[in-house]
Computed example of a mutant assay.
Amino acid sequence: MNYQDFLSTIITKLKEHFDDTVSLELQTVTKNNGTLLDALIIMNPDINISPTIFLNPYYHRYLSGITMEDICDDILKTYEAHRPSESIDITFFTDFEQVKERIIFKLVSYEKNKELLEKVPYFRFLDFAIIFNCLLNADSEDYATILIYNSHLNYWGVTANTLFSYAKHNTPLLLPYQLNNMADLLKDMLPDDADSEALQPMYILSNSGKVNGATCILYDGLLSQIAERLKSDFILLPSSIHEVILVPVDQCEELCAFSSMVTEVNETQLTDEEILSDHAYYYERSKGVLAM
């Protein structure tokens, strides 16, 4: 069964589980890095929002031998687990006074998002772009945002600088950072006789929601605080848009090797929309500067 037939079959089978008042629609959604995904939207007439269920991964599961019945069951379970119980009043989005306390920023690749950047306010940072969202829900299971476009700025009568000012204040408060020692996370996975203390020190930096957590590197003064705590320069590995890995080092001679590691992880472990960068960065404690 080819992919288009797979999508049609999914819709046909799922419709059997709903009455005629519920609509099932397929929408093509542009994700990070220009990745296009097919999303299933199941709309109840009494509720104005619905969880977005991406079907592309399910096709890969079908090709690996998972039955269509099991796939449909999983989609229905996902829908039930995330189905909202009531509508959301988004009329607040027309009033900047109600929006401004929810404005956050997000870090993405500049090169991989040039088409999107023609439509949204952004700022350059190294080889990244800083874009802006309105945060609706910070729960990692139901994380929800509205992307802010240039048209929204025109409607509100505000500038990109205004967005940045609010995002700089709001994002650390709404999505506080978390720094974890990787050795602590690996303890339960290592053999009993393994010495976790012998591992090269590495730290995972993300936010409380574990979504778009790489943005924490923008938090005012945070990298400097971490460097002082570690009493070391560090290499920053952009492991995905959701987190970065910090590796304390004495000098940046190892940067090329770490960049190769980032490239390999991007090619073998991440989906296209999860990639943030193809190389490593170096934070110099004495200068308080993150560099490519």
Rank of each mutant, 00 (worst) to 15 (best):
53 I>H: 00
230 L>V: 02
230 L>G: 04
98 Q>H: 13
75 I>H: 00
96 F>T: 08
162 T>P: 02
1 M>D: 07
181 N>R: 05
58 Y>V: 09
39 A>F: 03
286 S>L: 11
44 N>C: 11
73 D>T: 13
91 T>R: 05
254 E>P: 01
22 V>R: 03
276 L>Q: 05
224 S>G: 11
261 M>Y: 00
236 L>F: 00
148 I>R: 02
31 K>G: 12
209 G>M: 06
177 Y>F: 15
78 T>H: 07
110 Y>R: 14
264 E>H: 11
172 P>F: 11
116 L>K: 12
138 A>D: 10
148 I>V: 15
248 P>A: 00
241 I>W: 01
13 K>G: 05
238 P>I: 00
211 V>R: 04
281 Y>S: 01
232 S>D: 09
22 V>S: 04
14 L>M: 14
271 T>V: 09
216 C>G: 09
238 P>Q: 01
144 A>V: 03
78 T>S: 11
235 I>A: 04
127 D>V: 01
172 P>W: 08
184 D>T: 10
250 D>N: 09
108 V>E: 04
283 Y>C: 01
231 K>S: 15
33 N>M: 07
30 T>W: 05
266 N>H: 02
215 T>E: 06
151 S>F: 07
168 K>M: 15
29 V>E: 05
80 E>C: 12
209 G>R: 02
216 C>P: 02
63 L>D: 07
83 R>Q: 05
288 G>Q: 09
38 D>F: 05
182 M>F: 09
288 G>E: 08
63 L>Y: 02
97 E>G: 10
292 M>V: 08
267 E>H: 11
18 F>P: 06
22 V>F: 06
242 H>D: 08
18 F>L: 03
282 Y>E: 00
98 Q>R: 15
99 V>S: 05
168 K>G: 04
258 F>V: 13
205 L>E: 03
17 H>I: 09
243 E>S: 08
111 E>F: 02
256 C>A: 11
2 N>F: 01
